[in-house]
Design a binder for these strands. Structure first.
Lengths: 112, 112
DNA sequence: TACTAGTATATAGTATTACAGAGTAGTCGT
DNA sequence: ACGACTACTCTGTAATACTATATACTAGTA
């Protein structure tokens, strides 16, 4: 899918939170998951900016571990605040999707 | 719903296109519709920037009409390009929503 | 007249976010 | 030594919604 950049804003961070919530993982792997999911154009740099942001906002804990196949990995796990943020994310997402359905099906009332 | 700003990026323009597709309308009325829909924090300025953008991209035709209750209104209707853009928007939206469902339900494959 | 409220368009400036593009490092196989 | 893959880092840019404000027209009312 091309050019969904703008539509991903505010969504991608939630995706990353969700992926981390399934178990500790690191930036490169998160990128791979997103690409497998279908967001094929997501690059490491994008995920990096998101993880940095999550770290700044204390939504994730970090543990550095050595790898046998490359440089050390920074593993992320959600903090309590991170889990709360993830819930908030899905609440917002559900709100918007419900409104979009409403928009698609609603009769628009006209004024005079 | 608070703070859904970022999540609305790339979505709001599609909403405006959809609303215009139902029949000619103007900025202020579009804002009202969006607020009735539930996007209560959307303000005129935001819609204005969107309609300007639509105009620049030749997605809408404009007709100025006098009003009995205030200054003249600028009525918008979709051009052929606008209708195509609206279809593209829903395609993208459906893609993202399907991926989000997948994300929510998917088993995440772990690597070694 | 003067004031207020509701309607309606317009615009400058700001914050947030995803992305492009590049760099740096570590490990492994040849 | 070299290339391929893994993995994190960083700088800068474009797109978009929002804040805040200004302008203008009509109607009601004091």
């Amino acid at each position: 899918m091309e050019n969904i950049t703008e539509m991903l804003k505010g969504v991608l961070e939630g995706c990353v939170l969700e992926i981390i919530s399934r178990g500790e993982t690191y930036g490169y792997e998160i990128t791979q998951h997103l690409r497998e999911l279908g967001f094929t154009d997501v690059v490491e740099g994008t995920v990096y900016t998101i993880t940095i942001r999550l770290e700044k906002n204390n939504l994730v804990d970090i543990e550095k571990k050595k790898s046998t196949v490359g440089p050390p990995r920074k593993f992320y796990t959600l903090t309590e605040a991170g889990r709360e943020q993830l819930e908030v994310f899905w609440t917002k997402w559900d709100f918007i999707t419900s409104k979009m359905v409403e928009l698609k099906t609603m009769e628009i009332k006209r004024r005079g």
